[in-house]
Computed example of a mutant assay.
Amino acid sequence: MDHVTVLPAENGQAKVKSIYNAAGYYFHDTWRPLNGAVIQKFNDSSAITHCLKGKIVYMLGDSTVRQWFEYLTALVPNLKQLNLYSPKNTGPFMAVDSGNNILVRYRCHGPPIRFTSVLSSELHYVANELDGIQGGPNTVVLVSVWSHFSTFPIEVYIRRLRHIRRAVVRLLDREPATLVVIRTANLQKLNSENSLFNSDWFSLQRDVVLRAMFRGLRVQLLDAWEMTLAHHLPHDIHPPRAIIRNMMDMILCRICPVGKI
């Protein structure tokens, strides 16, 4: 069908309870969360700069959080990436806007890592990195750890998340105003090669564990699973730019709620 007409509910109409608890939907290619959160578009680099002014943003994890770093440095011209002679996939990377006092850093999580060889000196665990962050109202921490654990027993992932959870608790105890955003797993394209050792079923199991591990903490959950499931674009372990843009809009709205920028 080319068109769908949505009519308002009639008085007395029976309500149907869905067993599927969707996190949101896309309308005009913009993510609309069902929790009532107001989402603002940050299409203008000046709006992003204004939101991030005076902020330190730490991105810790795999290549799906590295996409956020690449998105910001590509869209915001004043956010200059420093050449640290780092490997392309693993980093560490750093971008600075000295005029607006913005610092954005990315570092890959510790082993297991599947995509490339990494110097042992650069294998920093997320929990250790979190313990080195002072935190505060001008600090944003974005974490994504899931993909590289899908080929290992679930106990390995649970053990890693327990250490990260404890480090997050310590960070929030030091500085409760720190914004911590945890990214969930997402669906991916399964071709004839990687379908031999990976699947969305493995990713889903880790997604369930991650949600349970951080439930009850003062952290924000970014539902990448739902945001990739609901979009019309094909699944990809690295979601297309349209989905990344919506993810970044969600994060920026949490850094700068509507009416405060």
Rank of each mutant, 00 (worst) to 15 (best):
N194K: 01
P137E: 01
Q67V: 03
V181R: 09
H124T: 14
H232A: 05
N11V: 14
I243V: 12
W146D: 08
E226M: 05
Q13I: 13
S147C: 03
I251K: 02
V145L: 05
K55E: 02
R114H: 13
N191R: 10
D236L: 07
R160H: 09
R218M: 01
N83H: 12
Y26D: 05
N11M: 11
I164T: 03
P257D: 02
G36Y: 04
K15Q: 12
N101L: 06
S86K: 04
A14S: 11
I164Q: 03
L142H: 01
Q67F: 05
L196F: 10
T178S: 06
K55S: 04
V4D: 01
N194L: 01
H235S: 13
M247R: 04
H235F: 13
M247W: 13
N198Y: 11
A22W: 13
R215S: 15
T116R: 09
Q220W: 13
A230L: 09
P8N: 05
W225E: 00
T116S: 14
Q13D: 14
V96S: 01
E155A: 11
V96G: 06
G54C: 07
E155Y: 12
V65H: 02
A37M: 10
R105L: 14
S45H: 12
R174L: 00
V118H: 06
L171W: 08
L210V: 03
G12I: 07
A127H: 14
N198C: 11
A74R: 10
L7A: 15
R166W: 13
E175M: 10
I39L: 10
L172A: 09
Y125L: 09
A37S: 11
L221A: 00
D200E: 09
N198E: 12
L142R: 02
I48T: 10
H231Y: 10
R105A: 13
I255T: 01
S203I: 07
L72S: 08
L123N: 12
I158H: 06
P257Q: 02
E155V: 09
F202K: 15
K53H: 12
L204F: 11
D200K: 07
R160K: 12
S120R: 15
V143G: 06
H163V: 03
L196A: 11
D173I: 11
I102R: 01
L103D: 06
V6D: 08
T64V: 11
R215E: 15
D173N: 15
N78E: 15
P234Y: 01
M213T: 14
D249R: 01
P239M: 06
